[in-house]
Design a protein around this nucleic acid. Structure first.
Length: 233
DNA sequence: ATCTTTCGTCGAGGTGAGGT
DNA sequence: ACCTCACCTCGACGAAAGAT
């Protein structure tokens, strides 16, 4: 059964998204022009090197934004959850995508065509201000990440990656936090080899910080992870 | 110069899911 | 039931960098 496309006017993420400052008629126009798609785990939402034709709003599921390094290894540069917006930077900059977005599990995404998005940004100052804020925040996050990648050893970066997953994907009231993620993806977030991630995960297990069941990781002691991740701050 | 630590690579084995 | 495949895990080894 094909899932029902949500209405922008009544979308549960309306008040937390980039479009929170939109007027009702603008939301109606967005709703008319948008497309709603679902993706299976591993499916590409947009591909590095392609021209952006619009922006994507994640309605459900999890998405990784990653790019290929010169050595052919994947580096995850961002994780997106429901309510997040993707692909806006390349669209604004009018350049090809510098990264790919891939579904990490069953994911539903709304696609807003470039013309509609640009019109909205042109006409609604509040939206364009929010957009600027979003870009500024993304830039700050990237700077932090760059510094951490350069300064911190793998163990600390892994702890930080686990905390990032927790802060991104933990749903309210769900404790302890569990996530199913391949060691490959985790190593792409940390920027290290899969085996190294596995080794340190085993250490974390021995220390009672996490437990694992297959690819599922449960964080039992986030405070300890914070301690480890901030050792080099 | 030597030792130690960290981390990447390789290879092998185990496990679970899905297909036939 | 059996096979295949993807994924997880571990041990061994070696390179690189820092410490002594």
């Amino acid at each position: 059964m094909k899932p029902q496309a949500p209405h922008c006017q009544s979308c549960q993420f309306k008040d937390s998204s980039l479009f929170k400052q939109c007027h009702l008629h603008e939301l109606e126009e967005l709703n008319e022009s948008k497309c709603f798609n679902s993706y299976k785990k591993g499916q590409v939402i947009f591909h590095e090197g392609n021209r952006p034709l619009g922006i994507f709003c994640v309605y459900s599921g999890k998405v990784k934004v990653s790019r290929m390094g010169s050595d052919g290894k994947e580096q995850i540069i961002r994780l997106a959850k429901k309510g997040d917006t993707l692909g806006y930077r390349s669209l604004i900059d009018n350049t090809k995508y510098t990264a790919s977005a891939i579904a990490l599990d069953e994911t539903e995404v709304c696609f807003i065509p470039a013309a509609e998005f640009n019109k909205l940004v042109d006409e609604n100052v509040k939206v364009s201000t929010d957009l600027m804020k979003m870009l500024a925040r993304a830039l700050g996050d990237t700077q932090d990440k760059l510094i951490h990648l350069a300064m911190k050893p793998v163990r600390e970066r892994l702890a930080e990656a686990l905390l990032l997953l927790k802060s991104t994907y933990q749903e309210e009231g769900k404790n302890p936090f569990s996530i199913s993620i391949s060691r490959e993806d985790l190593s792409s977030i940390v920027g290290t080899a899969k085996e190294t991630v596995i080794r340190f995960l085993s250490e974390f297990k021995e220390d009672g910080i996490i437990t694992t069941h297959g690819s599922e990781i449960t964080i039992l002691n986030p405070e300890k992870l914070v301690k480890i991740s901030s050792m080099y701050d």
